[in-house]
């Protein structure tokens, strides 16, 4: 019995070491080449953001606008929209995961910024959002001006909104959470007076719980882009071609209306 156990331990150890080390040298030069070799697009998406990427506990499926864009990409590159593998990212983890080569691209409500352009390459804008505030119905907070030193604003780690709100409302206390689900749960638990992020994401939260409303309009421009590993211009142009095709053949408008309930501007 003892001997049997010991050989098993050894076996598992070897397997683990093998897995760890095969994982190390899987980086391919071009994303497109890697995708075609693999026969699958690996996309980093949100699992906690209604309308863009949300996991349904009942079915285990992840659904949203970002997911549909990912499917269209798989169809374009591999001819089959089911050939995608989704990986959950948060605003905090998405850039390292892309840089590590673990995902091919990020389609996860990601704003194009100058700082991020130093880390990753971006596609053309595929969605125009703007930062706003979500508050409990009947809250005295009506916009940026209501944010004083006595108010707590909830945000998400690694998001542009967290940085922006510190500039726009320097007096307010900002609390940052791991992901949107956490932040929204914290708002419901009364940990803050308002939650700030992009209006489209907040709209999704309002749909989940109509006891909360958006206030104060938008106070920044948050153009979303698809992020691609730095220096891979071939894949950037593939993605840009796709976005253009989707817009030209009306698919983009259809998807936009399906998820957002309104036509794009």
């Amino acid at each position: 019995m003892n001997k049997l156990l010991r050989t098993h331990f050894l076996l598992i150890l070897i397997v683990v070491v093998a897995i760890v080390f095969t994982g190390c040298n899987s980086k391919k030069d071009t994303t497109l080449g890697a995708i075609k070799d693999r026969g699958k697009v690996i996309v980093g998406v949100k699992y906690d953001t209604k309308l863009f990427g949300l996991k349904d506990p009942a079915t285990g499926k992840v659904e949203g606008f970002d997911i549909d864009i990912a499917k269209a990409l798989a169809k374009k590159v591999l001819g089959d929209e089911t050939k995608i593998q989704l990986k959950e990212v948060t605003s905090k983890t998405r850039i390292p995961l892309l840089q590590n080569g673990e995902i091919d691209l990020i389609i996860a409500t990601m704003t194009i910024t100058e700082e991020r352009k130093e880390q990753v390459d971006f596609s053309d804008v595929y969605f125009k959002a703007g930062q706003s505030l979500l508050v409990k119905k009947g809250s005295p907070i009506q916009g940026l001006d209501s944010l004083t030193k006595d108010t707590k604003v909830l945000a998400v780690k690694g998001s542009t909104s967290a940085t922006n709100i510190r500039e726009k409302a320097p007096a307010a206390e900002v609390l940052e959470y791991e992901n949107y689900q956490d932040a929204f749960t914290a708002l419901k638990a009364g940990k803050g007076d308002a939650l700030t992020t992009d209006n489209a994401i907040l709209l999704g939260m309002q749909k989940q719980d109509p006891g909360y409303v958006l206030v104060g309009g938008t106070f920044t421009d948050e153009p979303y882009g698809i992020a691609i590993r730095k220096g891979d211009s071939e894949f950037v142009s593939t993605v840009n071609d796709l976005l253009k095709e989707l817009k030209d053949d009306g698919t983009y408008d259809k998807l936009y209306e399906q998820w957002m309930g309104v036509k794009p501007e």
């Binding site: 506990p57 959950e88 990212v89 948060t90 689900q181 719980d209």
Partner: peptide, 24 residues
């Protein structure tokens, strides 16, 4: 492992809690 989004029990508890605060 909740912080690296491993779909273990606490991660799923979090998702369920996100559906409705009454589920937390």
């Amino acid at each position: 492992a909740i912080i690296i989004s491993l779909p273990e029990i606490m991660h799923n508890v979090q998702i369920l809690g996100g559906q409705s605060f009454n589920y937390v």
